[in-house]
Amino acid sequence: MRTALIYALAALAEIAGCFAAWAWWRLGASPLWLLPGGLSLAAFAGLLTLSPAELAGRAFAAYGGVYIVASLVWMWAVEGRPPDRWDLAGAGLCLGGAGVILFGARG
């Protein structure tokens, strides 16, 4: 449960930080958006170090599945576009893969 919370918070921080840059660059928002965006990205990096994975690459790979799901939630909640069945199918596959990477039995 702790791992899911860490990855969910990391995803929120990363997406918010990246969206701040997107808003500035693509939507014409004030450059001041980059300040909280940068802080959010720093929080993302710090949160990801709390992953229980013993290797950074494994933590990052497993996080990728959570990021994909969180990105689709962001698309729906913030951008107003619900995911379609293909988005949901792909997200399910990615989340399953993340679980295998993070929790798979190793010798």
Rank of each mutant, 00 (worst) to 15 (best):
Ala91Asn: 13
Pro31Ile: 12
Ala59Asp: 04
Gly17Phe: 03
Pro52Asp: 02
Ala91Phe: 09
Ala61Asp: 02
Trp25Gln: 12
Met1Gly: 11
Gly97Cys: 10
Leu93Pro: 09
Gly38Val: 00
Ala20Ile: 05
Met1Lys: 12
Gly28His: 12
Ala59Asn: 03
Leu48His: 01
Asp84Cys: 04
Glu79Leu: 15
Gly96Arg: 10
Ala98Lys: 09
Ala21Met: 14
Pro31Lys: 13
Val73Trp: 09
Pro52Leu: 07
Tyr7Ile: 01
Ala105His: 11
Leu35Arg: 00
Ala23Ser: 12
Gly64Pro: 00
Gly97Thr: 11
Leu50His: 00
Leu55Arg: 13
Ala59Ile: 01
Ala23Gly: 07
Arg2Lys: 09
Tyr67Trp: 10
Gly99Ala: 12
Gly97Asn: 13
Val73Ser: 10
Ala56Arg: 15
Ile68Val: 15
Gly80Ile: 11
Ala59Glu: 11
Leu9Asp: 03
Ala61Ile: 05
Ala56Ile: 15
Gly38Gln: 00
Ala21Trp: 14
Ala11Trp: 12
Phe19Lys: 00
Gly90His: 07
Ala61Arg: 03
Ala45Arg: 04
Gly17Met: 05
Ala62Gly: 14
Ala77Asp: 10
Ala16Cys: 13
Leu95Trp: 11
Ser40Ala: 15
Cys18Ile: 09
Val69Lys: 08
Val78Cys: 04
Gly80Lys: 08
